[in-house]
Design a protein around this nucleic acid. Sequence first.
DNA 1: CCTTCTCTAAGTACAGCGTACGTAGAAGCG
DNA 2: CGCTTCTACGTACGCTGTACTTAGAGAAGG
Lengths: 261, 261
Amino acid sequence: MPSSKTPTGSESRNTPDAPEQPEQPEQPGRPVPPEAPELIWLRPERTGRGPRPAHSRESIAVAAIGIADTEGLDAVSMRRVAAALGAGTMSLYNYVPKKEHLLDLMLDAVTGEYRLPPEPSGDVRADLAHLAHEQLAIFRRHPWAPALVLARPSIGPNALRYTDHFLAVTAPTGLAGGARMEAMALFNGFICQFAQYEQTAAAGAKWQAEMVGYLTQAAMSGEYPHLAQAFATSGPPADPDQVFDRTLNRVIHAILAPAAQ
Amino acid sequence: MPSSKTPTGSESRNTPDAPEQPEQPEQPGRPVPPEAPELIWLRPERTGRGPRPAHSRESIAVAAIGIADTEGLDAVSMRRVAAALGAGTMSLYNYVPKKEHLLDLMLDAVTGEYRLPPEPSGDVRADLAHLAHEQLAIFRRHPWAPALVLARPSIGPNALRYTDHFLAVTAPTGLAGGARMEAMALFNGFICQFAQYEQTAAAGAKWQAEMVGYLTQAAMSGEYPHLAQAFATSGPPADPDQVFDRTLNRVIHAILAPAAQ
DNA sequence: CCTTCTCTAAGTACAGCGTACGTAGAAGCG
DNA sequence: CGCTTCTACGTACGCTGTACTTAGAGAAGG
């Protein structure tokens, strides 16, 4: 959701009776709510006062993931998750300021499923390949995850662990920090999109079949000669895992190439 | 939206008084509505009977794109688009069976903005780079587009033109048709994700700032040594266009590599 | 010509969404 | 003890996609 517009009143700003007050001088004793961090990882889960919460971010994420796994991401609504926890709908908002943050929690929770070796093996290609397969496995376990990653690349604690590991793995390449970050983006992006494509393809068999029909019809129409030629020179539909490995090799190759061009 | 669940009654199946009729034997004179194609490009825009429609798919797509460009994708609702056309909300459904299809129309319309040369120049690298920059320009003009491409890779007429051109450009590589298709997916995927990232970063400055703060704080915590090291060895924040070109070169390199590994 | 059939246009209605707001009560701190 | 701060949750609002229905325009067949 790239749109930054929130049509209702953005986020409970100052009382409207005090207009035009550009910088609040941090008056002591004030409730100071207007500057809560947007990033959920910067909000403390617990402040220590008041009654103990009945739930936790973790348990909420688990409940939401359960729903998403079995019924799809669309079924994950605040009401639905709250019901799964046996809580009232609005109680959820004590843990999660907005639904987007719930999605962040879900994503970081599944990111915790990586089984990372304590140290890189030293074989960069092998380590990267292992990482890629692990990631693909997670995405296949949680079909809704790729769409979320693509829409909102949030970085929680578990993603930090992953990032750190990736950087460790790619350390022998001699690339600078920034370049390795870019490499990671390319790497993750490829896997994510591959999983996402698998997902949409599997979701609608009819859609998929029609698409193939449309493509072949277009190829035979004569309007798209190169498409026709490509159809002619390509063998039977390839095994997804083979396509994945093949393209993964290309990506790894690109990453290891010495500062291309 | 990878979820295939439609909680309401899927799509107006046969009258329920005729249960268990697996294959309708094409009875003549029947309305035959139950097998309308899911893909909008397979539905004829006009059947020739009845009054002339007041709008067209094209004009609808233009209206929707205008809204998305100025107010974001979230603002594109059936009501909103219909109002922009001066039509009743439900009249839209005469042109577009579901909202997803409206999004398909929008995407294919902006895909028509490519200015493709009639023939490849013969320099594969240059042609691909040109294509990439054209694509990035389109995505920057229509910030909502990457998210749509990532969520639902539909292929309309204009996308076919693009695909055909890409295949023509990559013909000199000697790769088979299937391999070139895979290359295109990698190529487009990278550009799309780059644009999408730019978008989310630009959308929330506060979010972006907090993320940087969170990352540096994590790096300094000592828990993520490689992250810290990467921060130390990376220079000042890079120019996005430079990052794009750099990574693009890597991707092109990967595509041109002789059947990697 | 008129009849008939099909298509377009639009209104009404419904279930579901995210969430602003307000209230009631529990738990820690002075 | 009271004060404060937190949790829990019900109600309500505006919005969404879209199923269903009715009215009428206009081409095709006689």
